[in-house]
Design a protein around this nucleic acid. Structure first.
Lengths: 201, 201, 201, 201
DNA sequence: AACTAACCGAGACGGTACGTCCGGTCTTATT
DNA sequence: AATAAGACCGGACGTACCGTCTCGGTTAGTT
């Protein structure tokens, strides 16, 4: 695991092992700078200065500042709880899932980082892989699960194009975040889910 | 108009007027570099070198290289024809409209520029304003028109939430372009439009 | 006359005549900037801004900012009175002459300008010519006159090497101003003149 | 010592030590450019290009191009031998000392640098300190020594104002170099020393 | 306990680009 | 024709970061 890190999967068990504290200090500093100045204000030099960790050490652990930002993003995402046990309707479940997501995106750090990373995805293959496998994929599988359960319970069509449904749910959210700038409110999520359900049922 | 430019709407006719040729040369060089190396490879210095125009002159006309990229993007967008006269169904009209759009986005320069600008929208208010007013707004009004005509012709519900429909159409497209990386094919547009129509009818 | 100016001796009497006020405004602004920020802070652009005169106009009148500074210097020097009628001894006359000189050099503007021009003398032949003919030469002829009268009155040796004496008088003064930084006081002038008289008598 | 340099007297032995070769390459390039184009033609960018050393590295070592020029000057001055053992008269000793000095000043590089630095002395305190302590002070102590020995040997008056004598010797030399432009010849040194001795004896 | 490989901080270094200042030249409309 | 205004080219400035490269000094885990 630990994508983004340069470390070997099977550490050669020799010499002084890397200090865990160093990594934490770095990610903490990264998050703080990210919150204060956004991805544009994130510089390796700045992180080094703020964390007290040497620049060289940073490069020993991450290939670029984008990688570093991604790592910081992951630390935050991983604290999110998985989608709730699901007792109500599929519609309620979707709303319950997307609600916290937009809360995150509306938060300073999280939204900023996502926005900041986007343009680099096109340039940096490694980064794109990490972002998709470790941030997006989670959303997709979560939603896939929700939809699947909906199908099983006959709340959704059996022949539903779930891939497209996911695009229809996440697409507008990120479109607002990244491009139109329209606010991401619970009311919007309601309208969105209702519309998608009209198609999926 | 001419957002992004520093010039006055009604030039005070004083001093030597700006050479139009200079602007053209700059946008040409910008487009070329953009195509070759993407937004990340776009530097004011590079544009100056390639165009033979002095760096100072560039800064006199655009506030930043992002502004410059936006201007180059606009020059390309403005050559696009408006949505066709519309004789068939709303579905056909939508497909006919979104087809060229993804062709554009799939093209090297255009897609790259859009991707490259996204993250800066959050940082640079002026840039965001320009992008929304001059790039996005066009899509939105075009689509609004299409949908309105559909309503008038009773092909779409009278109480349709057109704003949401537009989010549902553009959202997934840009989501694929910017985030998931899934390809933007005519087939995808077909699926997308069919799904949205299921809701809108 | 008016060395340093580009004007034609016999103006071609056609079109709008040059405003005399323009020149004054320029020299005034020059002096002010010189006083505030020294020769290093003197820029053609700055003078244009402060005086409200166009940059082009400045270049029409002076070849460079050094020339401009020299012109400002001259305006100040020319207001100096010639050496006094001389009734006392040569020694007193010398002290009476050098006193005002160091007062000038100690003043903000004057000293700064002289210092600032020095290094350019080596580079700019025209400037050097102007400076020597129009600033230095005056000192030299004044002193030459004083010494000559001293010889006539038998206060100085008949075979006196007056050229050297002038070097011995002015040299140490400018050496202190430009290089050693030691203060130019009346007391110093006293010591200096006494020493030179010891040789010249 | 090593004024002008940013380095610490007692290096704290931390991090990669500065390469001596870098400094040499820089001063060499500086001297060459100085010889070719004078202080006016000396640019940090030019030195970087010629020496192959990065611009940033130059600024890491010297605060300005004037500092750099001073350093180059020092390298040259320090190779000068101290005043000769002195067996003859004080007059001969003075001539023997001032002769090489004017040879230096007459040489392309040396003279140019001195002239070029002069005006900056008034602006840049650090530079002035360096120049006085490390270039001028040497001349002064050398001459002071010569004069002192002259006094001890009864060749000069016991109550001699040696400070003034030094002004009288160096003043005219630099006055010619910087201002009047009159040539610095051995014959001139002869006349100068003879005159000063007339006062000092 | 000594060895030794890796970690880590510090800082030199070569680079690229930035955005700005200023120098000069030119072009236009106005006086 | 002189002037004001301002576009334009060009050179250099000093700075910010980048990513790499030595250094010296820890700090584990073998041997």
């Amino acid at each position: 695991m630990e994508t983004g890190r340069v470390f070997h999967e099977t550490p050669p068990r020799l010499g002084r092992p890397p200090r865990a504290a160093t990594g934490h200090a770095l990610l903490k500093a990264t998050r703080e700078i990210l919150a204060l100045k956004g991805v544009h204000g994130l510089t390796v030099e700045g992180v080094a200065a703020r964390s007290g960790v040497a620049k060289t050490t940073i490069y020993r652990r991450w290939r670029s500042k984008e990688d570093l930002a991604l790592a910081a993003l992951l630390e935050m995402t991983q604290q999110e709880p998985p989608p709730t046990g699901q007792q109500g309707s599929t519609r309620t479940a979707l709303i319950a899932y997307l609600g916290p997501l937009i809360e995150n995106l509306n938060s300073k750090v999280y939204g900023r980082v996502v926005r900041g990373l986007i343009s680099d995805l096109a340039v940096d293959r490694e980064l794109a892989r990490g972002f998709r496998e470790r941030v997006l994929a989670r959303r997709v599988t979560d939603l896939q699960g929700l939809l699947q359960r909906g199908i099983e319970r006959r709340q959704l069509r059996a022949d539903l194009d779930t891939e497209l449904v996911i695009d229809l749910l996440l697409g507008p959210i990120y479109y607002r975040l990244l491009m139109s700038g329209e606010p991401l409110t619970p009311a919007f999520i309601n309208r969105l889910v209702r519309a998608v359900m009209a198609y999926a049922r």
